[in-house]
Design a protein around this nucleic acid. Structure first.
Lengths: 189, 189
DNA sequence: AAAGAACTTAATACCTGGTACTAATAGCAG
DNA sequence: CTGCTATTAGTACCAGGTATTAAGTTCTTT
């Protein structure tokens, strides 16, 4: 045996997971076994054929596209009252933190708050024009950040002031005052 | 003729666009023409077969997943004098903009500026504690943003004020004043 | 070493959703 | 009726499989 069956199946699973587009014949070359063996392995592991896998990836994508407004928020929106308030939750994972010290990067917290503030606005176009933010405590890998946004002032000129406070448990870790521009196409980012 | 050819092809295009998973035989039923007609239409319109369409949707998805991991420094650092100044360049791509209007998301510009400000600091630990930012012009898909950071003040207490201005060509699109904490582990994110 | 189980490979028929090509037919204008 | 476009039909072939049966090949266990 080139490599024991169990090991091969473990690797197979991994390989397919990280490249769902790979075909049986490519796999059979990679593992130096016959194509039939690959197929038996897939059956045992209940891994569908390449076309089904691709279709699955694609349909996940379509789901996301459908819930456009939602998917553009960083974190999971768990409550939304347009032009009033909104709440989102974001779990700190590896890609959100500095690898050296496992502390969350500032722009991740900003992104959660900013996109929540933008999503809160009940209009076609909503863009941040100004923000003042304070990071009041470090956030670590694994912690769950709950961001709460509320509209503070709806101005005449098409600007809205939104205030966002983010918490880990009871502790406030971030707060920001955003000015969001809405509607026209003329102004800011 | 059930419906003129041109009209049918227009509808076909639309139909496939909004549901790339639809097969030729389903289309042929929907338009009450033979499957060959559908295939001729697809050829004339240069629309690939269903599996290719699905594959395309799926691979777009994979791209997004990769780029969503907003990990290390955002943008390419092209100049760095520690504790003095730094410059980075970021080209606006699909994943950086709102799909609706192709305008850059605020947190992308913030992330570029913030990570540049943090990278500028010559210390083990550097975290943003405060920021005041202004988005002064929309940035669009395809534009190149050059962020310039400079240290404004090195304070005694371990804080550093960094100012970042980002440009598209001559135009300032973003500016921010950051306060960066350095060294110890006690304070902010 | 021989038997048996587990694993691997081979071979073949069949499926879907096509491509590529040729040919026949329908419908209408001049 | 001729000619032209649009449509339909039919056939051969392809990729990337499923499903099944059968034939090796190891490995183990007695």
């Amino acid at each position: 045996m080139r490599v024991p069956k169990k090991e091969r199946q473990r690797l197979l699973q991994e390989t397919i997971e990280h490249n769902p587009f790979i075909k049986d014949d490519e796999l059979s070359k990679q593992f130096a076994v016959s194509i039939q063996t690959i197929r038996l392995d897939r059956m045992e592991l209940k891994i569908p054929e390449v076309r089904e896998r691709i279709k699955h990836v694609a349909s996940e994508h379509l789901d996301e596209v459908k819930s456009l407004a939602m998917s553009e928020v960083i974190g999971d929106m768990i409550d939304l009252k347009l032009d009033e308030s909104a709440i989102s939750v974001l779990d700190m994972e590896r890609e959100h933190v500095f690898s050296r010290n496992e502390i969350a990067r500032g722009h991740v917290l900003f992104a959660q708050a900013n996109s929540l503030a933008v999503a809160l606005i009940d209009d076609e176009l909503a863009l941040t024009t100004k923000a003042e933010i304070r990071f009041s405590r470090q956030v670590h890998l694994g912690e769950r950040v709950v961001a709460k946004a509320r509209v503070v002032k709806l101005r005449r000129d098409g600007r809205t002031d939104v205030s966002v406070d983010s918490y880990v448990g009871e502790e406030c870790v971030f707060s920001g005052d955003f000015t969001i521009y809405r509607r026209g196409e003329e102004e800011q980012v």
